[in-house]
Amino acid sequence: MNRLISPATPDRAAKVGLWASAVLSMAILLFILGYIVIEGISVVNIPFLLGSPVLSGAKGGILPAIVGTICLMAVTLSSAVPIGVGAAIYLAEYASDSVVTRTITFGVECLAGVPSIVIGLFGYAFLVIYLGFGFSILSGGLALMAMALPWIVRTSEEAIKAVPLTVREGSLALGATKWQTVSRVVLPSAIPGIVTGAILGIGKAIGEAAVLMFTAGSSLLMPSSLFDPVRALPYHIYILASEGISNPMAYGSSIVLLAMVLAINLGAIAIQAHYGRHYGRN
């Protein structure tokens, strides 16, 4: 009764403090987006999106870089998703809790922590030189796979584990084998989570200029095969800015890269909304 500060005061202070943190997180995103759009929107137009670079990118467009980025994502997804989902199925359904399993899980977590520059260097030594893939979409895409894989394994494993045990039992009780149960009931139920993992993984990976500069090359020409080099958007942005070629073009390219990542995220939300009703309510 005689307290100087009533308990309501820290309560209110906590609420305000937490609200401020939440607003600040959003504000940082809006600030970055706003700054880039203001700096770069003047160069973004149809010739920019559909044209080829002129004078090392100081003029002209960025179509080869956009195509190269999409090709890299395709290679990364088509290699990382089967391997990542396969590993997740093994960890969630087949592996018992043993030293081996814990070692694999620990290894996957470590892979997530390997700095991108190191993966780039390894990709150069192994994919570009040793396997002879050269600077190419293939080398770049496979190196990015190492960046995306941990996300895909982790989120897919969580999604598979979240499928209720009772549903597995229902399938086994009908005389299904383990693989039939996993492939026909468990995996379809886990699709929203797996898609989320793939999106997170590719979103993280595609921005890694440090990996791409060592593996995908820096060609500004339109690629015509998996073995052609490409200059992905993040690396193009890096070169435009670091070599003083054109800041507005760098910001313009950033807008395009952000838009591509945003489009992928929206695609993920659409897929989740489509499949989300399964077990979403339980």
Binding site: P164, T166, V167, E169, G170, S171, A173, L174, G175, A176, Q180, R184, V185, P188, S189, H278, Y279
Partner: peptide, 24 residues
């Protein structure tokens, strides 16, 4: 066969639930 404590239909159509076993 076995029927469980909590209903555990598969997340698929009514038809596919019943056809699941025969298809297997």
């Amino acid at each position: 066969g076995m029927v469980f404590q909590k209903p555990n239909p598969f997340p698929m159509s009514v038809y596919d639930n019943v056809a699941y076993g025969p298809r297997l």
